[in-house]
């Protein structure tokens, strides 16, 4: 449902072993159906914030609420359930399983969740990203742009409430990057996912509804 808050981050700090403070008191809210871009130089804390949004990591202090659940209080089983049901991931380096075909990569989250109609759903998603003819191709047979589109199809397979994208166009040429950004926009609009995207790219930042400028573990500005 657009407009509702999918992720709430309240005064979160994250300190790693060795005393590195990746986040020094950050608060943010992500709306369903909207795209939030996290921009800033390397080491500013974007990836850490992304991992917190995706319930892949926990804050040292503060609170992270994902799809209505405070992540710090959840056990491994509940976190896994959250990732299965509510969160989709898109990575800079695509991260497709090299031994599975494009279709099988898209099926994977559905199989892990024990969903029904796995194949039909996966084919739909692959068609949605415009690659129905590449169902049986292995990743090494696809271009970078095609691999990222398959990764997006995989991330959207289970209709996630939150889509976490880490530099989704970082490894793509301009044309492929534009295509991927259009798909991300459509994902927010058509699936109602709250998209949070870490990026250095001005084009990627341009499609965002909210632009969060970060520096040294803090939010500098939100526009």
């Amino acid at each position: 449902m657009t407009g509702t808050t999918a992720v709430r981050i309240r005064n979160v700090r994250k300190t790693y072993e060795g005393g590195v403070e990746a986040l020094r008191g950050v608060s943010l809210e992500l709306a369903a159906g909207g795209i939030t871009a996290l921009v800033g130089r390397s080491g500013c804390g974007k990836t850490t914030l992304l991992n917190l949004c995706g319930a892949m990591d926990f804050p040292t202090s503060g609170e992270v609420e994902v799809a209505g659940l405070i992540t710090s209080g959840l056990g491994d089983a509940a976190l896994t359930g959250l990732r299965r049901g509510k969160i989709g991931f898109v990575f800079q380096f695509f991260q497709l399983l090299p031994s599975l075909t494009a279709l099988e990569n898209v099926e994977l989250p559905l199989l892990l969740a024990g969903a029904k109609n796995v194949r039909a759903t996966a084919r739909e998603r692959l068609a949605w990203v415009g690659l129905p003819e590449k169902a049986d191709a292995l990743p090494y047979q696809l271009s970078g742009g095609q691999m990222q589109r398959v990764a997006i199809a995989r991330a959207l397979a289970h209709n996630p409430a939150i889509l976490v994208a880490d530099e989704p166009t970082g490894n793509l040429d301009t044309a492929s990057g534009d295509l991927v950004l259009r798909l991300i926009r459509r994902a927010a609009d058509e699936f109602g996912s709250a998209v949070v995207m870490a990026t250095h790219s001005a084009e990627a930042a341009a499609i965002a509804d909210v632009r969060v400028q970060m520096r040294d573990g803090l939010i500098e500005s939100v526009t």
């Binding site: 896994t80 359930g81 049901g85 989250p109 969740a113 289970h158």
Partner: peptide
């Protein structure tokens, strides 16, 4: 390792 980590991202439990 990377693949297994990815599969955990995609919702696989222990």
């Amino acid at each position: 390792r990377r693949e297994i980590g990815l599969i955990r991202y995609l919702g696989a439990d222990d």
